[in-house]
């Protein structure tokens, strides 16, 4: 007889995840990815059970983005080495594009992130963007939360030039943009205001020499301040993933930004706002502006969601329920 596989029990799973058990994190991510109604309920329960302070006040959620081939994966690998030396546990979410025709995807980013040995304190999950939510798939937010419960650093790597990389800056504490030497694109985008200013800018491949130095100078000259970053001074750094140079400084800048958020009491509100936006975005995908208006409009929803501080699935499901009830009556 064929036996369907049982879904994991969310309470035990939450306990193991907060106990930083790698296998449990893997199972939790599978559950979050699972769209069957029964799985959704359990996932909501899982997220609601994980320790709230870990998800919203601890750890460091970093977004790393930049044009294809800039060396994001190589830099991630180099950062992993530094973080491991600092004895931090690291989780990576690597987002790759899917084929619009087949829906299939080749997930190869792990390749450059591998070091010689299998390190049990580094966890890498690749995710196809599945053609939704701009460049990021909807699962990234809940998955980041689960990883925050188990790792000290969670890094989301995505391809992005221009508008698209804004997505990752709408999810993470700190956005780091990797610029490609001799490619004017990022500078143009920054100047034109098409691209939101990241919190940390790094020109990779400084080993190539002149081109990297030139790009560095141009970026420094064209930088505006990040409107949502207050008095944070955006560092423009130079590094080489290949040589391993400038990586310590990059890691320092990333953690400086986190400290700055913390000191200014911005970390927690930031995560809550992103969660609220994530929920609204998903409601919008399902019900359009009509649905959002029926729930009181975007501004009200935002205000309401950022104070309530429930788990994202619970909030989403409650709102959805409300909408459907409204329409029935």
């Amino acid at each position: 007889m064929l036996a369907q596989r049982a879904l994991p029990d969310p309470d035990t799973l939450a306990e193991s995840v907060s106990g930083r058990d790698r296998s449990a994190v893997a199972r939790a991510l599978n559950l979050l990815d699972d769209r069957r109604p029964e799985a959704r309920q359990r996932a909501a329960r899982l997220l609601a059970t994980l320790p709230r302070e870990r998800l919203y006040t601890q750890g460091h959620l970093i977004g790393l983005t930049g044009p294809p081939g800039a060396g994001k994966s190589s830099l991630t690998a180099a950062l992993i080495t530094v973080w491991r030396r600092r004895n931090l546990k690291v989780g990576i979410l690597a987002v790759d594009p899917s084929s619009p025709i087949s829906g299939g995807a080749l997930l190869g980013d792990r390749l450059r992130m591998l070091s010689g040995q299998a390190d049990s304190q580094v966890f890498i999950r690749s995710l196809a963007c599945r053609g939704e939510y701009g460049g990021l798939s909807a699962e990234v937010w809940p998955m980041s939360l689960v990883m925050l419960a188990a790792f000290d650093i969670v890094l989301v790597e995505t391809v992005g030039v221009g508008q698209k990389e804004i997505d990752v800056s709408k999810l993470t504490d700190t956005t780091c943009f990797v610029a490609q030497p001799a490619s004017g694109d990022s500078i143009q985008f920054l100047k034109a205001g098409i691209m939101e200013v990241p919190h940390v800018l790094v020109v990779n491949k400084e080993d190539v020499g002149t081109a990297a130095r030139k790009t560095l100078a141009e970026l420094r000259a064209s930088l505006r301040s990040n409107p949502d970053a207050g008095d944070w001074q955006v560092p423009v750094l130079s590094a080489s993933a290949a040589r391993g140079s400038g990586i310590e400084a990059l890691a320092d800048s990333l953690s400086d930004h986190r400290d700055w958020l913390q000191q200014n009491r911005l970390l927690k509100p930031r995560r809550h706002r992103f969660q609220a936006e994530w929920i609204i975005k998903r409601l919008h995908e399902e019900f359009g502006w009509f649905g959002i208006r029926a729930l009181g409009g975007e501004q009200d929803l935002l205000a309401q969601l950022t104070t309530e501080q429930e788990s994202p699935f619970a909030q989403y499901d409650a709102l959805r329920e409300r909408l459907l009830m409204n329409w029935k009556t």
Binding site: S99, S102, G103, G104, L106
Partner: peptide, 9 residues
């Protein structure tokens, strides 16, 4: 990939 799998290699 072409028949729709997500493939890790």
């Amino acid at each position: 990939r072409d028949v729709g799998f997500e493939v890790v290699y």
